[in-house]
Design a binder for these strands. Sequence first.
DNA 1: CTTGCCTCTGACGTCGATGTCAGGTTTTAG
DNA 2: CTAAAACCTGACATCGACGTCAGAGGCAAG
Lengths: 157, 157
Amino acid sequence: MRIGELASRAGVSVRSVRYYEEQGLLTSTRSPSGQRHYTDSEVERVAFIQRMYTAGLSSRTIVELMPCIDSPSEETSDAALERMALERERLSAHIADLLRTRDTLDALMATARAHQHRMRSAGADSDWQPPASCRPQPLSAADRSGRSDGQGVRTPW
Amino acid sequence: MRIGELASRAGVSVRSVRYYEEQGLLTSTRSPSGQRHYTDSEVERVAFIQRMYTAGLSSRTIVELMPCIDSPSEETSDAALERMALERERLSAHIADLLRTRDTLDALMATARAHQHRMRSAGADSDWQPPASCRPQPLSAADRSGRSDGQGVRTPW
DNA sequence: CTTGCCTCTGACGTCGATGTCAGGTTTTAG
DNA sequence: CTAAAACCTGACATCGACGTCAGAGGCAAG
């Protein structure tokens, strides 16, 4: 397939695909006229690259990880594994940070909802309904660590 | 305290503190000579702002959330709560993405380690020790969702 | 052959949080 | 008092992953 189809299948822009190649993350076979052609497997690769980017890795980092992916031979393992472990650690730290931040948001929303309720039971407009965003959050199924207070605490961050 | 102390206590640069004020995230009382002065509570506020930034929120978004934080009255709640719920959703999605990415990294590392082991049992240098990064990962205590395969699968992403 | 769509290279623009530098004032330590 | 250190404003620089535009060529359908 050509670059446009690859891009739309992987859900990125054509520009991004060219950029990935420019960064050494992707290769392409060229038609005699110079147009890039790709196989189906490149779609997943591009999606993978995109996920790495959104995970906060830089081009340089992804490049350093790629040899471990392209040819998991004894050549690549040593340095690349080190980097992968390091990035894994960074990822875990970042995840923990985001979880804490989400907890903070939850606490803030809880206090705000408490305010709404106080308003509601004291106000004259008793037919008022809280917006959808105010109803108890489903807490996203997976990964919870505990914490469900945030009860009237001042500056809950 | 003055800006330098605030910055170092909150673990950010002086430049950043001024930037936060410029963005309307922070206020300061000025001494007659024009120098900024802060109270202890501002330290936590700056740290909070920083956490929001590292969580991927933009200045504009944080600003929109701030009224809900500064004065949780009935004025602020409606629009701000909507935004908080929205940002919470974005956060959850991002967290899920990062977890998936970390799983991918784990799978990649597992295959790499498998390679190392094959090398080790077949190679001549039997006294070789895998680097620290190759030993089984502690999986970071909290939040696991399952997945511990990655056994020789080709292109595990 | 022409028309419309896709692709190419190359370059410059962008955006957001910060770094950094200049030139000047204020505070602090000796 | 004086020198060092911290602070001020204002401005320009940076970096990374793209957007976007220009100008030229490729390719299938009518």
